[in-house]
């Protein structure tokens, strides 16, 4: 599963690079013809970033939820432990083990609270209230 994931990621990066090559040619062309249009320079960069952002958020949430199967992974872990004899593979993720015996609670604690005394932070939710702007 991990492998396929990394392969996919590589694919993504490769396609990204490809795009970048194509764009470079176009950029060279424009540099030859017209004066330096500065805003065009980092277009590739911007496009790549936007692309990556979308890649990361959209399908990855689904992968995050359904990708890893947490059900009974333990058996493999135990088999691995006996293999070494003297050495023991302690990799079978400690994190999931800790999670397995963690506190059963539905609350979703706020990890890094924002500073709600700042105006900008307060503005970030202004339109959630009836007192904010109403779009048409």
């Amino acid at each position: 599963n991990l492998e396929s994931k990394s392969v996919k990621e590589e694919d993504g990066i490769e396609s990204l690079l490809k795009e970048e090559d194509e764009y470079k040619e176009a950029a060279d062309f424009s540099a030859d013809t017209a004066g330096a249009l500065k805003w065009k320079e980092d277009l590739t960069q911007k496009a790549a970033e936007a692309f990556l952002r979308q890649q990361q958020s959209a399908p990855n949430l689904r992968k995050l939820v359904y990708g890893a199967v947490a059900e009974d992974e333990e058996d493999e872990g135990e088999a691995g432990e006996e293999l070494g004899g003297l050495f023991r593979v302690s990799r079978p993720d400690k994190e999931s083990k800790r999670k397995a015996d963690a506190l059963d609670c539905s609350k979703f604690p706020v990890e890094d609270p924002q500073n709600w005394d700042l105006d900008e932070v307060m503005d970030s939710i202004r339109d959630c209230f009836v007192t904010g702007n109403w779009e048409a």
Binding site: E71, K97, K99, A100, D101, A102, D104
Partner: peptide, 10 residues
């Protein structure tokens, strides 16, 4: 179904 650990018991 089979699970491991006490988390998510409910």
């Amino acid at each position: 179904l089979s699970y491991v650990g006490c988390n998510f018991l409910r």
